[in-house]
Structures are given as structure tokens and as C-alpha cells.
Design a protein around this nucleic acid. Structure first.
Lengths: 214, 214
DNA sequence: AGGTAGTGTGTACGATGTACACATGTCAAG
DNA sequence: CTTGACATGTGTACATCGTACACACTACCT
């Protein structure tokens, strides 16, 4: 059933995942689902946790920077695979058992690297919130459903009516609608953040750039 | 009507904002709303844009770092005021006319500071996605409705069953459920990110710490 | 043979978004 | 003052959704 729910989610998106449609897909009457799940909320929680479980945890012997970088990429990849997941994760309390694994890994590489105790949690939180925020904004912009069309349309309509003398910088930069879908942009922010975290570890500062991974 | 919708949103949260309840509040029949709004989606878009309009744009003569810092704080403040707004902004395509003002400001301070052209957009996007991501995760955790209770409960239930030998680092760090609600944590990540962005401006590098604004 | 648990069914209800046709009010042009 | 257009509110109706409740059916253990 959970597999069916997952593929249903992947097929039609979050909006199309209804108890009735899921039941149909399973050749079963809607109420049958309630034998396995208390209600739809719980179903979504389980799906979320399943998606989080797909995040592959990087090797534990990586240096902190390579480790966090790999972790962030890993999360981004998993979120992009299940298109709707990022907004789900970000919209709802979260915290299935599998999210613990992610925290454990992040805490591990940071502590191992000798980060000051009070810098460990903020550092990891920063990386995770940046990653989730970026991906949550990225995903609806990537192709799929009417997403890209509606985004482009609304972009055009907004930028079209823009007064270039009132917004000179916006015109000069000419921001691309696809910017937030770009892995390069993700990496720019991620590396910047990692740089800043390195400055705050309260210990030795670099080792960073030599990372053999990636 | 929009004001009524805003206060309704603030009162009962996104879930409680229904066309019928809004109509009731206005002493009007539900269908009357459709004279002013094409559908509920459009209503939400308008509300979002209204919330974005509340973001106060910092003075344009600030140095890039002080400016982006103030902008981020400004956004966070506005999002926290309208509790549900952050998840709305992050879940849906966004881009009302007012979001342009924010971009214009950010582009402005960065260009003025001499950032390389191809670093301007990524830098601003990084700050904005970090800010939105943090706030989106922060808001539902802050008090209001059953949010805090349900979060704490789920945290307890998850951590309670945790095996300290399997997750030693998580135990050592003992992450606090309230961490993401803390302004200090927000600032930690923000300053780290700004540090990293400073390293990437492709021009002069500091001037940073002396910012008189906070 | 009988009971007990797990699972699927049928029917039903309330809430929600919204289509459609109609009523009412306001106000400018004749 | 009348007329007609336009903006706004009304009433009724429907499809879709989540889910409560009472009832089967099956399987397995005793």
C-alpha cells in the first residue's frame, strides 16, 4: 500500500493523492485504507519518512566539509526524486525516525572534526535549512505538471509590466527564472555557507578544499 | 475583503481560511467572494503578495553585508508576523509584484558593492532561500494552535525510543526542539553564509564586521 | 465447532470549492 | 424620470473529499 501511495504521489503529485484515488489504484474501497493508517495525515507522515529514508548517508570517514557537502547533495537528490516531498517536509512538523539518521551523521562529522560543542547544532541546522529551502523553491520550478508553464507565465506577466527605471538593478541582473533550478546556484550557496561554518568551528580552519570527494 | 482574509488567516491559520468562513466573517454568502477573486488560489496569491509587501526594505546606502543582513531579518520578521505565510510562500510559485522590490534591493546593494555580475544572483538567492527555509521550518515550531504541542510530542516519542549506542552523536549534542525557533541559530547560519558570500564577491573582501547596522 | 483478530465493504454525513441563473443596487445617458 | 448597463450579492446545486459506523468475510488457533 505504501508503495502504491508513493507511486501515486510520484505520478500525479500531492494534490492527486486522495484516499479514494489510492483505494482505486489498489482495487479496494476507500475505507479499507483506514485499517492500515489512522488517517491521511499519518499516511503523509509515513510517506515523508519513507522519502527521508532514501537519503543516502555519506561515508562517515569524510572530513566535515566533504561530509556535509555530500549530505546536502544527497538530500537534494532524494527530494528531487520525489517531487512533492520537499514542500511536504517543509510544510509539516517532520521528524520521522529516519530524519534522526541524518542528524546523527551531521553531528558526527562535525564533532569528529573538533567543532566546538555549541557550534555543532547551529552549523548542521544551517546546512539543512539552506538545503531544504533551496530545494523547496527549486522543485515546483522544475518541469512537471503545469509547474514550469505557470511559473514562466507568471514571471513573464510580472516582469513584463516592470518599469526599468524603477527597478534598474533587476533589469541589469536580469534574473533567470531557471536560476533556482540550477545545481550551480545550489552549490554556490552551499559552499559559501560551508566556508562560513569553517570560520566558526572554533578550531582548525581549513583542510577544506583538499576534499577528495566530489 | 482582503483585510478580512488576512485577519482570518492570522486568527485561525491557513486550514481555517475557507471560502465559507471568510464569507461568514463578511456577513455575505460564499459565492459573493467570487466577484472579487477568480478562485481560492488567486485569493491566496493576493494574500501572499500582501504579506510580502509588509517586508520593510532596508536603507539603500547600507554596505552589502549590512543590507542583506537587514533584509533577511526583515523577511523573517514579516513571515513570523503572518504565521502561515512562510509555508505558503515556499509551497507555491510565489512572485507577486512585491517580491520584485526585494530582489531589486538585494541586487542593488550587491552591485553597488562591486560584486562580479555572475555572483550577484547566486548570492542573493542563497540568502533568500536560506532565510525562507529557516523560517518555514521555524514557524510551525513556534507556539500557536497545537503546533508546539504536537511537535514536542512527536519529538519525545522519537527521541524516547532512540538507542543511545546507535545514535551516540545525537545524544551527545542533545539537539533542542526549540533550536530552529532561536534567533541566534538563524543568525549563526546567516552570518556564516554572508562570510562565504564575501569570499566570493570577486572583489574587495571585507568591510564586513564594521557594519554599524545590525 | 467456535471464537478471535485482521481485513475489506456499504452506506452515509459534513465540509469544501465552485458553476449557473437570478436578484438587486447604483449611476450615467436619453 | 426613465432606461439600461454594470457591479455586486443571493440561492440552489453538484462533485469531491476525508472519514464515522456497522457489518461481512476469511484465517487461524484452540
Amino acid at each position: 500500500m505504501l508503495e502504491a501511495a508513493s507511486t501515486a504521489l510520484a505520478d500525479g503529485g500531492l494534490a492527486a493523492l486522495t484516499m479514494r484515488s489510492l483505494a482505486d489504484r489498489l482495487g479496494v474501497v476507500p475505507m479499507a485504507l483506514y485499517r492500515h493508517v489512522r488517517n491521511k495525515e499519518e499516511l503523509l507522515d509515513v510517506l515523508m519518512d519513507e522519502a527521508v529514508a532514501r537519503v543516502v548517508i555519506p561515508p562517515t570517514d569524510l572530513a566535515w566539509r566533504a561530509g556535509l557537502r555530500a549530505l546536502a547533495h544527497s538530500i537534494r537528490t532524494a527530494m528531487i526524486e520525489n517531487r512533492e516531498m520537499a514542500s511536504l517536509v517543509i510544510a509539516r512538523p517532520n521528524l520521522g525516525p529516519n530524519s534522526i539518521r541524518i542528524g546523527e551523521y551531521g553531528f558526527g562529522v562535525l564533532r569528529q572534526a573538533g567543532f566546538r560543542a555549541d557550534a555543532v547544532e547551529p552549523a548542521l541546522n544551517a546546512v539543512l535549512t539552506y538545503t531544504l529551502g533551496f530545494v523547496a523553491l527549486e522543485v515546483p520550478r522544475a518541469e512537471g505538471a503545469d509547474g514550469v508553464a505557470s511559473i514562466s507565465a507568471s514571471l513573464d506577466s510580472v516582469y513584463g509590466t516592470l518599469d526599468s527605471s524603477e527597478f534598474p538593478n533587476t533589469f541589469a541582473v536580469n534574473p533567470s527564472p531557471g536560476a533556482l533550478v540550477s545545481k550551480d546556484q545550489f552549490d554556490f550557496g552551499l559552499e559559501a555557507l560551508l566556508d562560513g561554518i569553517g570560520l566558526r568551528q572554533g578550531g582548525p580552519s581549513s583542510e577544506a578544499q583538499a576534499g577528495r570527494r566530489r
